[in-house]
């Protein structure tokens, strides 16, 4: 065995197995540990690129931020759909954002965050991974959107995934 079992992946798989079976029986715990170790080891051979969590303690705050933003953007999108925003036109369109985050796992998490908040959908990266394209439902203030994405999501992700 050339490399050890990836610890975070193995722990996530154990937790998922136990939650899926809704049990804490000792036999199931043993099965979960054995399966998770084997699957994590095989998985890491299939995909050699490993995420490195440099500052994992920043993650809970990011999660809280994302939760608050999901609630807020659901309300904002709901108001637009119900036609409650009457004082102005709603323009939707593409928005380009310069990126500083380069870690592929960080980018994957950023894509999940952006798509999970209604009102923004990830369209893609430029070939050099320096510019991100988004589709925004309410493109009122482009600078504010860029500031939100960069300060609320990108900065903590750089902290978590990059040295």
């Amino acid at each position: 065995m050339s490399r050890a079992v990836p610890p975070v992946l193995a722990v996530v798989l154990v937790a998922m197995w136990l939650v899926l079976n809704d049990t804490m029986a000792p036999a199931q715990v043993v099965a979960a540990v054995v399966l998770a170790a084997a699957l994590a080891w095989w998985g890491s051979k299939l995909r050699p690129l490993r995420p490195r969590l440099h500052r994992p303690w920043l993650a809970p705050a990011l999660l809280a931020t994302v939760f608050v933003d999901i609630v807020r953007s659901n309300i904002a999108v709901g108001r637009i759909i119900l036609g409650l925003v009457r004082d102005r036109d709603i323009r939707s369109g593409l928005l380009e954002i310069p990126l500083d985050l380069t870690d592929p796992h960080g980018l994957a998490v950023l894509a999940t965050i952006i798509t999970s908040t209604p009102g923004t959908v990830w369209v893609g990266l430029s070939p050099d991974r320096r510019r991100l394209t988004l589709h925004v439902l309410d493109l009122r203030d482009e600078a504010a959107w860029i500031r939100t994405i960069k300060e609320r999501y990108e900065r903590p992700l750089i902290g978590i995934f990059e040295p």
Binding site: V77, S92, S116, P118
Partner: peptide, 9 residues
């Protein structure tokens, strides 16, 4: 964007 409301919150 409308569809993503149902699948998130």
């Amino acid at each position: 964007h409308g569809a993503s409301m149902g699948s998130t919150l």
